[in-house]
């Protein structure tokens, strides 16, 4: 294991972390403001990737694909909200889990019926092709750096929006005590529509950005959804800051664990069992970290409600 490998995997981890943050941000806000548990949020990420890849292929341009996929993802999110989710706000978490689970079953199958089961390809835009020299003899793709930069920029924008604007203040107030905000004359349903649509668009954006580097297939939303849940549970539900820190943490642990543990274990055991044990332990690492954090702080690192 060399320093170069560590550097590359560390960057990959951060880049996966910012993608996770884009998905988790919407989830944690929706959850914080409306106490609504939306399993179908991962589907938004998948739809973003599929719409982006299809629109890019149709228009012949990555950038047009990206720009068109965002409003399309927004519309999908709002349609789902109108059709299904708004009838669930008054229901218990169990009903919300099951109904949104039904939405996942439907949309995963719909994607399979429309685009087929084979993974879709989305080309890297010409502007961001090639690599940069990290160290002598070590190239790192520009596109992956672009994901990192774009993710951090959106995170910064989100921070300004939530912490420094009137809308953001309402969202934070809603996450702390929604009935009180409603009592003060704020249209909490309208506010929620806004947060929901924005969250759906962020997840869609993450999907488009991920499409050229990760595989675009019908199950991609589920993997990300569960990691996003881990992120918001670790970060503290409703906290954007917590989600950001937890997302980077989870991204790095997941990536480094999977790539480095087999090598690390080879130092103390034979190659073949080391590869197996390393793979098993690497995929468990995030959940072990979550269990440890929650054993100490059952409400996450940055709990919003006291």
């Amino acid at each position: 294991m060399s320093l170069g490998l560590l550097l590359v995997q560390g960057l990959n981890g951060l880049q996966f972390g910012v993608l996770l943050f884009l998905v988790a941000a919407g989830l944690t806000l929706v959850f914080g403001v409306m106490d609504f548990i939306n399993l179908a949020h991962g589907v938004q990420y998948m739809l973003g990737a599929y719409l982006g890849a299809s629109l890019a292929a149709w228009t012949g341009s990555f950038w047009l694909g990206l720009v068109l996929a965002l409003p399309a993802a927004l519309v999908c999110g709002l349609v789902l909200e109108w059709l299904v989710f708004r009838h669930l706000y008054e229901r218990d978490h169990l009903s919300q889990v099951l109904a949104t689970f039904g939405v996942i079953l439907f949309l995963n199958q719909a994607v399979r019926a429309i685009w087929g089961s084979a993974p879709l390809q989305m080309p890297v835009p010409a502007l961001l092709e090639g690599g940069v020299m990290l160290m002598p003899g070590l190239q790192y793709p520009v596109y992956r750096i672009a994901i990192l930069v774009a993710g951090l920029a959106v995170a910064g924008l989100l921070w300004v929006l939530v912490e420094r604007t009137r809308i953001g203040a309402l969202v934070r107030a809603g996450a702390t005590h929604a009935p009180m905000v409603a009592a003060l004359g704020v249209d909490i349903r309208g506010l929620f529509m806004l947060v929901f649509g924005f969250g759906a668009m962020l997840a869609g954006f993450a999907g488009v950005m991920a499409a050229p580097v990760l595989s675009v297939d019908p199950g991609m939303g589920d993997t990300v959804l569960i990691l996003a849940f881990v992120v918001i549970t670790i970060g503290g539900i409703g906290s954007v800051r917590g989600a950001f820190i937890a997302a980077l943490l989870v991204g790095v642990i997941e990536t480094l664990g999977r790539s480095l543990l087999p090598d690390l274990l080879r130092l103390v055991m034979a190659a073949s069992p080391a590869r197996q044990a390393g793979a098993a332990l690497g995929s468990m690492l995030v959940y072990i970290a979550m269990a440890l954090i929650l054993a100490v702080r059952p409400r996450g690192l940055f709990p919003v409600r006291g």
């Binding site: 978490h93 889990v97 849940f229 098993a280 929650l294």
Partner: peptide, 25 residues
């Protein structure tokens, strides 16, 4: 130790942990 939504998510996460372990055997 947790309750409500946290419990749902943690059981989901532990389930995934078992799933990935089985896949890597």
């Amino acid at each position: 130790r947790t309750s409500g939504v946290h419990f749902i998510m943690i059981t989901l996460a532990f389930g995934q942990m078992a799933f990935f372990t089985a896949s890597s055997l």
